[in-house]
Each structure stands twice: as structure tokens, then as C-alpha cells.
Write a protein that binds this DNA or RNA. Structure first.
Length: 262
DNA sequence: ATAGGCCTGGAC
DNA sequence: GTCCAGGCCTAT
């Protein structure tokens, strides 16, 4: 149940465990995927690539596994010949001589020819990955001011994967707090320096989360990345001590400081 | 722009 | 059991 930073950690862990190794075992829970098994056995895992909240696992056989964890999917890794311990439902199992990776619970699992996976509907729709190295605050500001986005409310815009891929409900709350903005503000109405601060928050908050949260990608909340507002209803705003409120925005819970987020 | 549905797991 | 959720799609 991750956002961009957690997905990227999962990709890192999978790459450490699998990348460059040949598959000694392949198992799918779905009948529709069985036909790919013979082609994948003996092929190598080339690279696991995060795309927003989706993962692309590329194989040397010219096939790519598309998976999306939604709220509930989870990759776990164990040693070679072992099984991760989990009470959840296994969906995919990839085994090499170095490690075993099992994808649990996820329902959104597909195999595509690598050459065509870019035409996957989800990949077609999403914007730049918010965690891509090349993404600069200035280009985020530029994007905020594009006609398709400039007049939309920030609360909904930050959740829209076609704006930037990888943001989700905790990141939008923390970004809005960092930029001192309420969810009803629209990019087109903001003065230049406020836009610049928003651009910086959009770039920096996910990076901080990626750099400091959790260890192996198998964990959820860990101590290093501190939520300032998310799930902190009633606690004091770290900036102005006003109690944090929980509201509904864009059909999702949003936590914010009613005093310093204008 | 918003509501409802879908999928699954966890908190209560 | 019930409700909620860090997601996303489709229908209004």
C-alpha cells in the first residue's frame, strides 16, 4: 500500500535480489499467465523499473511483468529456496539462485512484450515520475502552469497521476503543509514565490521520504520520515501549534493545519 | 468535479 | 462482524 517512495524502495530491493540473475523458478496464481512460464524459465531478470506506483519487471526473454500494488499488494523477498513468511495470498513467485521474490495479494498483474509495454493504458496516462532524478522544481512549476493543470484545485491535482506519477494521499498532505497551501488553491492564482515554494515541496518531500523512510521496502511506517500532518488529527501543527484537522477532499481524507495552510 | 465501485487487508 | 484505507477506474 505504497506511494512512489515505497514503490521505489521495493524496486531497489527486487533489483538487489534478482537483477542480472536467471530464473530457476516461476509461478503464477493466474491461469491466464501460465503460458509465459516456459519462456521465462532460464531467462534473466534484467531490471525492475518503478513507474509511479507501478512496477515493470523486465526479463531477457523480451517480456515485461507489469504489476500494481493498489492498496494491498506486497513484494516480499527470501533467500534462495526459501519462502517469505506471510499469511497473504501469493500471486507471483520468481526464484533465482540468489533469492526468492513473492508478490502477494496484488490483483493488477499482467505480462506484456517488452517492446509494447509502453502502450499499457496506465503508462500512457501517467505524467513524469515525481522521483525521477532529472525532475527540477522549475520544471514542476512549468507543469503546474500548463493549461491542463493551472486552474485545477491542488488537493485533487496532486493526486492525479497524469500530473505527476508517484504522489499519493500522504504526500499531498505533506506537500501542501510544507508549501503552506490549502487544497482549494489553484496554481494559476498563486504568486510566483508561492509557486516556487510549491515546486520545491513537490520535488523535495517525496525525495526525503524515499531517502529516510523504512528499510527494505517491506515495511510501512518507520520513524525516520516524520509526518507533520498526515494521520495526526488533533496533534499540534509543528509550525504554529494549532490542532491539525482531518477533512475530506477529493473523496479522500486530508490532514491539514487550518491556521497556517491558506 | 464528484460519487461509487472494485480489490484486499487491517484496525476496531 | 463493520468500517476504513497510502489507489484507481468508470459513470454521472
Amino acid at each position: 500500500m505504497p506511494e512512489g517512495p515505497e514503490i521505489r524502495r521495493v524496486a531497489d530491493a527486487l533489483n538487489r535480489a534478482l537483477a542480472g540473475r536467471s530464473l530457476t523458478g516461476v509461478w503464477f496464481a493466474f491461469e491466464r499467465l501460465q503460458a509465459y512460464r516456459p519462456r521465462l524459465l532460464g531467462a534473466a531478470v534484467t531490471r525492475v523499473e518503478p513507474r509511479g506506483k507501478a512496477l515493470l519487471t523486465h526479463f531477457s526473454a523480451g517480456l515485461t511483468l507489469y504489476s500494481h500494488n493498489q492498496l494491498y499488494g506486497r513484494w516480499l523477498i527470501a533467500g534462495a529456496g526459501e519462502n517469505p513468511s506471510s499469511s497473504r495470498t501469493p500471486r507471483v513467485r520468481l526464484e533465482t539462485e540468489a533469492a526468492t521474490a513473492v508478490l502477494y495479494s496484488a490483483s493488477d498483474i499482467e505480462i506484456w512484450p517488452s517492446a509494447e509495454v509502453e502502450s499499457h493504458p496506465f503508462l500512457q496516462r501517467i505524467g513524469p515520475d515525481v522521483l525521477d532524478d532529472g525532475l527540477a522544481p522549475e520544471s514542476v512549476v512549468e507543469r503546474l502552469l500548463q493549461p491542463a493543470f493551472a486552474r485545477r484545485k491542488l488537493g485533487a491535482l496532486l493526486l492525479d497521476q497524469s500530473f505527476l506519477a508517484g504522489l499519493g494521499n500522504y504526500l499531498r498532505a505533506e506537500i501542501l503543509w510544507a508549501a503552506c497551501l490549502g487544497p482549494d488553491q489553484r496554481p494559476a492564482d498563486l504568486p510566483g514565490e508561492v509557486l516556487a515554494a510549491l515546486g520545491r515541496a513537490i520535488v523535495e518531500v517525496p525525495r526525503l521520504s524515499y531517502a529516510t523512510r523504512g528499510g527494505s521496502g517491506q515495511t510501512h511506517h518507520e520513524a525516520a520520515f516524520r509526518f507533520n500532518v498526515f494521520k495526526r488529527e488533533g496533534a499540534a501543527c509543528p509550525r504554529c501549534r494549532t490542532p491539525i484537522r482531518k477533512i475530506a477532499d477529493a473523496s479522500r481524507p486530508l490532514y491539514l493545519c487550518p491556521a497556517c495552510q491558506a
